[in-house]
Write a protein that binds this DNA or RNA. Structure first.
Length: 282
DNA sequence: CATATGTCCTGAGAGC
DNA sequence: TGCTCTCAGGACATAT
């Protein structure tokens, strides 16, 4: 089971690298260990020219991206996609280390981007109105959106609620793992069409979304069986021990203790749910 | 316009 | 044992 950094994992990365705020970038390099380079935009020499000497002003998050704001009006955007990690300590392996940012003036000497599968990217973009730059691709953050906004943005859709929750233009931050967990807590069947959900059900989904994400952040995200996801100090998260449906197919439901968790495929992604807790019809 | 599908990538695990 | 094949799902491009 692969890692998939979603909002809680990316938020954990963000919090983990906060100690670098105030330090200065003295070098940016691409280690030789990475064979096929990830996307670095603009090019590495340009990035080095613009970033070296800059001071780190703040660390934010934009959906599933970590944003490192520099004091020169630009920001480094780390997008981990499937297997990317933003680290202060040594990476899981020397192989797949994609970018090394050397720092001065911090107890940590480096900020690293490691990515086993290399689907992620690092970009340098203007710090100003970053949200607007992503406005056509990112909806409100999952922890900031209101229940009314959520219902408004998805209420007319004919898509299954599980599929719709993965649409970053609707709400930013939810991915495949947490979508299943959220709908289980909300007691909503994942195949229910959005346009057949009533206001109370949207409220339940919204409340469950906040609860699951908040708890997952408290446990520093989910490290699945392949062990890929780590926090900024290369330590595993703990929320996988609290999953109630994800990757638990054929196990007895921990909530009702009667039915077996089922796995189905929606939009080429696995969905896990309890047929007793999450009935098809209400 | 809304929604669906194809694509990239690596390594774990299945099956023979 | 060692090979080949499938699958995991982020975001975006392209197709319907």
């Amino acid at each position: 089971m692969a890692l998939m950094p979603e909002l809680p994992e990316v938020e954990t990365m963000r919090r983990g690298i906060l100690p670098i705020v105030g330090s200065r970038i003295v070098d940016v390099s691409r280690p030789r260990s990475s064979k096929k380079p990830i996307t670095i935009a603009p090019t590495l020499p340009t990035l080095r020219r613009r970033a070296v000497g800059a001071k780190i002003r703040d660390v934010g998050r934009l959906g599933k991206r970590v944003v490192v704001h520099l004091d020169r009006g630009e920001a480094l955007i780390f997008e981990p996609r499937m297997t990317g990690l933003v680290l202060l300590s040594d990476p899981p392996t020397a192989e797949h280390l994609r970018l090394q940012i050397t720092l001065d003036g911090s107890q940590h000497h480096q900020l690293l981007y490691w990515d086993r599968r290399g689907l992620g990217s690092v970009r340098l973009l203007p710090s100003e109105n970053l949200e607007q730059q992503w406005a056509d691709r990112l909806g409100p953050d999952a922890l900031k959106i209101t229940a009314e906004q959520l219902a408004e943005r998805l209420g007319q859709s004919r898509r299954a609620i599980k599929v719709a929750l993965l649409d970053q233009r609707a709400v930013a931050g939810v991915g495949n793992l947490y979508a299943s967990e959220i709908l289980h807590l909300a007691k909503i069947h994942p195949a229910r069409p959005c346009n057949e959900l009533c206001p109370d059900e949207w409220k339940a989904i919204h409340a469950a979304m906040r609860e699951v994400l908040r708890l997952a952040i408290r446990h520093e995200g989910s490290t699945l069986s392949d062990g890929t996801y780590r926090n900024a100090l290369n330590l595993a998260g703990g929320y996988q021990n609290h999953h109630r449906v994800y990757d638990r197919a054929e196990e007895r439901c921990l909530t009702c203790r009667r039915a077996e968790i089922q796995r189905v495929v929606q939009a080429q992604r696995s969905t896990f749910f309890c047929p007793a807790c999450q009935p098809q019809r209400r």
